[in-house]
Amino acid sequence: MLATLLLLAIVAFLSIWAIQVQKDNEDVMIQDRKLSDVAKKMIAGILEISKSLSAFGNRIPISYLRLVPHQEAPTNICWGDRNRSVLIRVPLGWTITRNMSDIANEQQESKYYAPVNKQTIEIRSADNSANIFMFLAGLMIGAYRGLTDDKALEKAEEFYSDSNIFEREHNFEQLPASCVEAAEALEEQRHIFEENGVFSKKMLDMTINKLKSFNDKGLSEMLYGNNNQEALRKLVEKYIYCG
């Protein structure tokens, strides 16, 4: 897999929140001043394994207290340009070579010209409990699957939302709502992560067993439904120092 990525001559700059990809020192996230097919394929591939990625990006029970509907946090497996409740958001892309600060500060004397565009895509689910190495490796697996999937553009279209994702006509799948559900998702898709030896069987077994040990299925609904502030406080205090 690594050799194939090198042959593609793609250099990826990844973080928990954003992905930017260059080829031959050019940003391939943009094509004709719009989001490119390469970017859309990567989005489709990542979204297809996004349930499993929760096992690496949301590793403690209080992670899922944030991931609730009707908040600026992702629960639906979809992507879009403006809605902050989508899982992958496409932020404002500057398709000219001038730096943002030059445009925002017209009286600034010095002018900086960037060699490439600055378009990125944001992955909005992971939090500070994430195992950054496993999460980034998972993102690479998803991106690679999208780039090598002949139907990725069709899937990207199906995942796309340009309106309120909580309206009834949308029927997007949901992210896991607990550590246990994340473990179950990883179990179902573990063969994807074990391909090409990227993740070992032992590594995935340990991750799944650890997540299941929290036994937190339905915990968010119970705490919020009963408005149990004291139990919520104790839970946060227990896991807030996860790092």
Rank of each mutant, 00 (worst) to 15 (best):
A137T: 10
N228E: 13
A44Q: 04
K111E: 10
S178Y: 02
R66E: 11
C78N: 09
K51C: 10
L67E: 04
V28C: 00
D216I: 01
Y224A: 01
S220E: 07
S110Y: 06
K238V: 03
L47A: 04
L139T: 02
R98P: 02
K41D: 00
V90P: 04
N25Y: 06
F135A: 14
L232S: 07
S220V: 15
K111V: 10
E184A: 10
R145Y: 08
D37S: 14
P74H: 08
C179Q: 06
S178P: 01
S129R: 12
V90M: 15
V38C: 01
S101G: 03
G146S: 08
I62W: 00
S85Y: 02
V198L: 14
F13Q: 13
F56G: 04
D162W: 09
Q31L: 15
D162F: 15
H191S: 15
M203I: 00
E167M: 15
I103H: 03
M140N: 05
S213D: 08
E109S: 08
N164W: 12
V116I: 09
E184R: 10
V86R: 00
K40W: 07
Q20R: 15
A183V: 05
P176E: 13
L147Q: 08
W79L: 03
D27M: 13
L65P: 06
I77W: 06
L211P: 00
I240N: 14
G146M: 12
D149I: 01
S63D: 07
T95N: 12
E237Y: 04
R66L: 09
I19T: 14
A55K: 02
F159I: 03
F166C: 07
I49W: 02
A55S: 09
A143K: 05
I192F: 13
A18M: 03
K234N: 13
L65K: 03
N226F: 01
E188A: 14
M100N: 11
F166H: 14
G93P: 05
P176V: 12
M29V: 04
E26S: 14
G142V: 00
H170K: 11
Q119H: 12
